[in-house]
């Protein structure tokens, strides 16, 4: 960049970021505490808000481990095994990245809803999925499905199988190989995938709005609470709820995602276990 353009470019870039991201995010914090900390606190400690908060945490506690196990499993399968149907896994795992969450939710309703494919079968057994918590968990797990697999897969391909084979010839079983060899090498990319998954599940709105029916005190998650408060002319509740959700997401990002920055100086120990960039995770890939 020629010297003449350096400063204008810097100001244009930073100005765009400020107007689009920094100032709006700051203003949400301002609006939440505009009428004092007490008003904001009262708005998010109502029974509805507390219920929404704990439901969101509950959904994260179920959906994130499910997606993590699936993601690591799929990454191991695609990286280490040849089997029929591999292309299905590889091609369709990315779909939630490119598809509207509303469509994801609609698809789940059409399969598990009252008039859906499994509707009668589920109803006969008294299992409620749609308009109930299991539906919220499924919708959240679906939209966040690709992140773990897409973070871990490139690292697995890069580290190769030499160490695993060496461990096997020395008599280590599959579980020991996974825990002692594979897991330590994918640790950071796994943490990053789990971070993205958690942030996505925490903030999912469209898919959850479709499957949950947003029943207050029953199936209302944090995002639905924010939307509901806003539409019911309770801006303080909406903004304060938004602040809580934003802090939760940022906290997850700092705790788990921060790991890849902190440990960078120890890269020499396992150079290939570098976390993939955001784009590597988000770009659809066929291996």
């Amino acid at each position: 960049m020629s010297r003449r353009w350096r400063l204008p470019a810097r100001f244009a870039a930073l100005g765009y970021l400020a107007l689009l991201i920094v100032v709006p995010v700051g203003s949400v914090f301002f609006r939440a505490f505009q009428h004092g900390f007490g008003a904001a606190w009262d708005a998010v400690t109502t029974p509805e808000a507390t219920h929404a908060f704990w439901l969101t945490i509950f959904v994260v506690a179920i959906a994130v481990p499910l997606d993590t196990i699936f993601g690591v499993g799929v990454a191991l399968l695609l990286a280490r095994h040849r089997f029929r149907g591999a292309w299905i896994l590889d091609a369709f795992i990315d779909i939630p990245l490119a598809l509207s969450p509303v469509v994801v939710g609609l698809g789940l309703v059409l399969v598990y809803g009252k008039s859906g494919w499994f509707g009668n079968w589920l109803a006969a057994r008294g299992i409620a999925i749609i308009f109930s918590v299991p539906g919220i968990v499924m919708a959240s797990a679906t939209v966040a499905l690709p992140y773990v697999a897409r973070s871990v897969l490139p690292v697995l391909l890069e580290i190769g199988t030499e160490q695993e084979q060496a461990a096997r010839t020395l008599g280590a079983g599959p579980v020991a190989i996974f825990l002692r060899i594979t897991l330590p090498s994918i640790r950071r990319s796994l943490a990053y995938g789990v971070t993205l998954t958690t942030a996505r599940v925490l903030g999912e709105f469209g898919a959850v709005a479709i499957v949950s029916g947003a029943i207050v005190d029953k199936t209302q998650t944090m995002t639905l609470f924010i939307d509901d408060s806003f539409n019911n002319l309770d801006p303080v509740g909406a903004y304060a709820g938004a602040v809580i959700l934003a802090l939760l997401s940022l906290g997850v990002l700092l705790i788990l995602g921060g790991d890849r920055h902190q440990r960078r100086e120890r890269r020499w120990q396992s150079p290939s276990a570098e976390s993939p960039s955001d784009m590597e995770v988000l770009l659809p890939a066929t291996t």
């Binding site: 942030a199 709105f205 944090m222 995002t223 806003f230 938004a242 997401s249 990002l253």
Partner: peptide, 11 residues
């Protein structure tokens, strides 16, 4: 990436 979409809209 981290911010929930509803929060982004509200923001």
């Amino acid at each position: 990436f981290a911010l929930p979409t509803v929060v982004a809209g509200l923001t």
